[in-house]
């Protein structure tokens, strides 16, 4: 209780600053299986402001996905506190306050593209007319309006992932959690989707927490990058990205961009991520 109170004051230092979307304080998660104890996260403290685009980056096993899953209330913290949207992670999940995009599209193969997008709306009890109009709107937003009657497996991998983004956006959550959403795609498709996602974030004004292991992707998309390191999973450094808000792919060739990328790489190296 005392920790909670301290946290609230820490998260809202001044009246004119909105409360943070996600605040983690000394968060630890330990898995135990077959007598083996794995420390997935150790004393992680971060605060993610509203409207920010924050990337969690690090090598495999650094706990970035675990952190994201904890925010989504898919993992339970072993110790520490976690505030999502001003309340508990469970409260945020029950309020359907966030949209989650997985590493794979996780589309249901027996539903058409449009009905996949409508799935969360059905579960939330939205009237059918509203469901259809939203599915149309968000499929249009990800550039897939003409594909609403297709089945997921009739689409390419990149298109499938765009459907899953439309699905996450369809109920207009304030917070979007993305777990290496483009990791399985080829680089050309990935570039296109990065550009697309950046545009979406700029226009929708939501908070995005984005897990990746690609440095250029993190730098290109983010307003801030959280660098993590494995065994045990922890935060090494937080890097502000001072690049123009308006971004296109050519930005990646500029010295400013390369400088940020270099800083991220240095931080990753400092985390002994190659052992």
């Amino acid at each position: 209780m005392a920790a909670d109170a301290a946290l609230m004051t820490a998260a809202a230092p001044a009246a004119d600053v909105q409360p943070a979307a996600v605040v983690a304080r000394d968060l630890s998660i330990v898995f135990e299986a077959d007598g083996q104890r794995t420390v997935a996260l150790q004393n992680v403290s971060i605060a993610i402001g509203r409207g920010a685009f924050v990337s969690l980056i690090g090598p495999s096993g650094c706990g970035k996905t675990t952190l994201l899953r904890a925010i989504a209330d898919l993992e339970r913290p072993t110790s520490g506190t976690l505030v999502v949207n001003g309340g508990s992670a469970e409260r945020a999940r029950l309020d359907r306050a966030y949209g989650y995009v997985f590493q794979a599209p996780a589309l249901y193969p027996w539903r058409t593209v449009a009905r996949n997008v409508m799935l969360p709306l059905e579960i939330m009890g939205m009237p059918p007319a509203e469901r259809r109009s939203r599915a149309g709107r968000y499929l249009d937003l990800v550039g897939l309006k003409d594909f609403h009657r297709r089945f997921p497996w009739q689409l390419s991998g990149g298109m499938q992932q765009r459907v899953s983004i439309a699905r996450a956006l369809s109920f207009e959550p304030a917070l979007l959690l993305m777990d290496e959403p483009f990791g399985a795609l080829d680089e050309i498709t990935r570039d296109g989707l990065n550009l697309h996602l950046h545009g979406l974030w700029r226009s929708a004004g939501m908070t995005v927490v984005f897990v990746t292991h690609s440095i250029p992707e993190a730098v290109f998309l983010s307003s801030r990058i959280v660098v993590m390191s494995p065994r045990p999973g922890r935060v090494i450094e937080e890097i502000e990205v001072d690049l123009p808000a308006e971004r296109d792919l050519d930005l990646r060739e500029t010295p400013a961009f390369l400088k940020v990328a270099h800083r991220v790489r240095e931080a990753l190296r400092a985390g002994h991520s190659y052992d």
């Binding site: 989504a72 209330d73 898919l74 999940r93 029950l94 359907r96 966030y98 949209g99 989650y100 997985f102 590493q103 794979a104 996780a106 249901y108 799935l119 969360p120 059905e122 579960i123 939330m124």
Partner: peptide, 19 residues
Amino acid sequence: MQRDLMRTYSASGAQVFRK
């Protein structure tokens, strides 16, 4: 992953079953 998706929607047991 398909089950986690349902969890992020905080779907009820009946909804997970039906959908």
